[in-house]
Design a protein around this nucleic acid. Structure first.
Lengths: 210, 210, 210, 210
DNA sequence: GATGAATGAGATTTCATTCAT
DNA sequence: CATGAATGAAATCTCATTCAT
């Protein structure tokens, strides 16, 4: 695996001080990006916040863009992992139990760092080879969801499972993000309930629920 | 409503040449922002693209930020107007007809300039007084939707109309935006159908649909 | 008298509206220069303050420099005129009466617009052909003073009348300017007295004064 | 003494390279200001003249204004130091010896860089918190002078020592500045003599001089 | 390696001046 | 003549990136 010059981290340091600095830089960047916006995210400020120097920053990232991409990838990885773990654990559960649990999980995952999430979303569209954060996270979520629905194909109403997965993932995702911005819905059980209803009623053949 | 100095356009150009320049600048900015991203949107390039000079640009906008805000407002106005017109015309229609029509309208409205929309969305969160584009457009959409649902309160299932409106608006909005980015769903009648289904099944008491 | 292009007013308008605008521009410039400093004195602001348009301003002054020079000249003219009138009226008076009266007059003349005076002083040194305001006003004052002292050559102590004039004029001038900036000495009779003393004791052979 | 943000140098450079750059910038600014005037003193030219880059300049000075203020302060410090050294060395000397020496010193100190001095004088009046160079240097000189005169209170004529100090300092200061601009008086012993006479005759009870 | 001073291209913004209306 | 929109050169300032220490 040869590092393509320019877009990827110079190296992915695995151990000790190197790893610590690498992460510190990424953390600092995440913090500034989410709390103060992209305009404020200068390499010098990142270094200071990370407790290092610009020079060291450039030891790990060949340029600013690569840093943003690394940030996106780390964030995406976190979210994907969380989502896949939940879904895996619910693979055998029936729809009526699995759906609210997944919805809940996705809502929770957005409370972590919604601002960072939002900022990363756009930023990378014109930076990192056109692939946005949503693309990465949601594409993966669609795959996982689709697998789950395929396994239940005859329990569910929609004929086109792929399209249904796409719709549901993006719906829940968007609502999670919005909820994160609206205090009255953040961590509101009734809201989670409604979201689960929305999904279940779309999926089930005979929605005599609630 | 007092104009905060520094954030609003310098003057409201009323006649001929002025108005033309003002609009040309906004158009140029929109164009560059959506096709080339924020990093490329420099005041000089905007002026050149608009067929004017930087000086003229600064005659109408005290700084770059105010320009971005004006862009957001103009775009929001357009979308809101479109949405409200549709809903108004459907105020008397029954759910089963109104919902698909509205969904269709929202999807259509996003095909106009999805990149501009996406870029504006983030940009303004750390710039213009913290109000994002979504906030403006969707808040208005929620109000309109809620009014419509209130009028049909006993036809619909959800008890909390406010929350239902919030959920539906953001769902359709998000799906519209995503569809704009996915060729296979953009202008796809089956997709529109599914979205309408999603909404209708959530709203209706006895979904004897399909 | 052909106008040299570039440094002199386009024309010295003698009558009616022209003269009024010309003066309004100069007044506005003086006002801004003395209250807000040179950096703030832009041609546009001058025009607005004067109640005209930049276009009209450029009808009377070929460029900004010529405006500053006109300002200096008008101010110098005013001061010189005041000074010469006083001295002329005291030509026959004895030293002990004339000196305090002149000192008083010079002090008074500086209370008119000390900030404008101070600002003009430097400004023009690199602008208007190197001649500063001081040069103009004080050079003239030296001439007048010298004439007065020559007429009393045998009443006074200093042998070199030219040098004495130079010293006295600049001394009184400087003290006037300083007094304008120090509330405790502005319009303070004891201060005027001391200044008169300073001059008289320098001039008189047998200073049995006070 | 809290550093007001925006008006003070960014950092106090202590070692080697930093200090050298810092000084080089100030020297370059002084040079341009005195020889070519404020209009020519652009940050880029300063940097070039200093043999650095604009970037470095802005590493030490947050903006142009702070640079001008630093310039004023350094210049004022130099003059004050020179003046106080002279006066201290003459503290015990009798009036008739001290006064000419001091006058001579002040005249000399103005020959160093009269243009810089003159330009700084005005410039800072509207820039650096309203305190002009004169204010700083002369205020200090008045204090020192007053202390000297207080010690000789019964040798001297004027009752109000404070006012006398004010008058004398400003007189000599102004004459020094003027002399710097008039070749025929610059470094002219007769001129120095006259200035000393002026001061002595004002101070002494029985001026049986010359 | 780590550091942070130095670099300079380039971004934002101002303002004297012109000229179509 | 008056107006003020338009112009664009030039000024101030920022920040990604390099490199001597």
């Amino acid at each position: 695996m040869v590092a393509q010059p320019g877009k990827t981290p110079r190296r992915a340091p695995r151990q000790g001080r190197s790893k610590a600095t690498f992460d510190a830089v990424l953390d600092a960047a995440a913090q500034i990006l989410s709390h103060e916006g992209y305009e404020q995210m200068t390499t010098n400020r990142i270094a200071v916040r990370a407790g290092t120097s610009v020079g060291s920053l450039y030891q790990y990232f060949p340029n600013k863009e690569s840093l943003v991409i690394a940030l996106r990838d780390r964030h995406a990885e976190k979210m994907i992992e969380a989502f896949e773990t939940i879904v895996a654990s619910l693979m055998e559960a029936p729809l009526a139990n699995a759906v609210p649990a997944i919805a809940q999980a996705m809502l929770a995952s957005h409370n972590i760092d919604p601002e960072l999430h939002a900022n990363l979303n756009i930023l990378v569209s014109h930076l990192g080879g056109g692939r946005r954060l949503v693309d990465k996270v949601e594409a993966r979520a669609v795959v996982v969801t689709r697998a789950y629905l395929e396994a239940r194909r005859d329990e569910i109403r929609p004929a086109n499972v792929e399209r249904a997965s796409f719709i549901l993932v993006h719906t829940v995702y968007a609502l999670a993000q919005q909820a994160a911005h609206h205090p009255q819905y953040r961590s509101n059980p009734a809201f989670v309930n409604d979201v689960a209803d929305l999904v279940l009623r779309f999926l089930t053949k005979d929605p005599a629920v609630t």
